[in-house]
Design a protein around this nucleic acid. Structure first.
Lengths: 120, 120
DNA sequence: AGCGCGCGTTCACGGACCGTTCACAGCGGT
DNA sequence: ACCGCTGTGAACGGTCCGTGAACGCGCGCT
């Protein structure tokens, strides 16, 4: 039963495949190398079903304890995670900022790939 | 069951879906990026069941405190909110002005689509 | 012990965004 | 024509966030 668990405990979203219990995430099958914090962020965000997660809650669930004012750890790790996700899947944007509210996870085609007007 | 709570706390009106507790609003499923004030306005207006909300009350409920004479913040933010709603759902008008009374929220087909009186 | 290295935190700078205010235009009522 | 009310663009100061860099720490290796 504990051996079959990892088959059930998977978050799939777009080309991402996350195994929360294992510390493993794959992009198009290729494993990502994430640190503990990076992986924690990814799990919490991707597991929140597209809702906005407030910074305070993000900190509690990944770091544990209360977010002290002025602590920028979240920003830094969001950035690191974004960087790794982007280099793995350049045309997808996963983590979206909602200023004043928090971060939202949702695979969306990155806007940086704006197709030149094929208009007639 | 504890996970189902967020499903209840939703305002649905037309193609809009508003999650007051989360700071998130969607138009046709696509998330809108609203500032804190814009979102506050949307929640209060959309949650007022189509009644007219006086400016005084709008200000109290979104900004907190009393509306000082000459304060134009409401006008500016109504405008910003309208702009974002319109670019998300161009053929719908949501916020209607009642001069001297306040604003009323109600999804109506925008009149901007039967333009030409000049076309005969 | 000394070294290199990955990790997490902190700092510093700059840019993006937010909310307020001002200035002017349009419109309806008197 | 005048006035009060609202729409709308622009400017401004402040806050929030993105991002590169420095620092300290623990760990494995030699």
């Amino acid at each position: 039963m504990e051996a079959a668990e990892h088959l059930r405990d998977v978050i799939r979203t777009g080309a991402l495949e996350i195994h929360p219990g294992q510390g493993l995430a794959r992009a198009d099958g290729r494993a990502l190398t994430l640190s503990v914090r990076e992986f924690g962020l990814l799990v919490v965000l991707a597991g929140s079903g597209g809702t906005i997660v407030r910074r305070e809650e993000l900190y509690r669930r990944v770091w544990g304890g209360a977010l002290r004012p002025g602590d920028r750890s979240i920003d830094v790790y969001i950035h690191k995670l974004r960087t790794k996700l982007e280099e793995a899947l350049p045309e997808w944007a996963f983590i979206h900022t909602h200023v004043g509210f928090g971060y939202r996870f949702s695979p969306e085609r990155s806007r940086a790939f704006h197709i030149p007007s094929t208009d007639r």
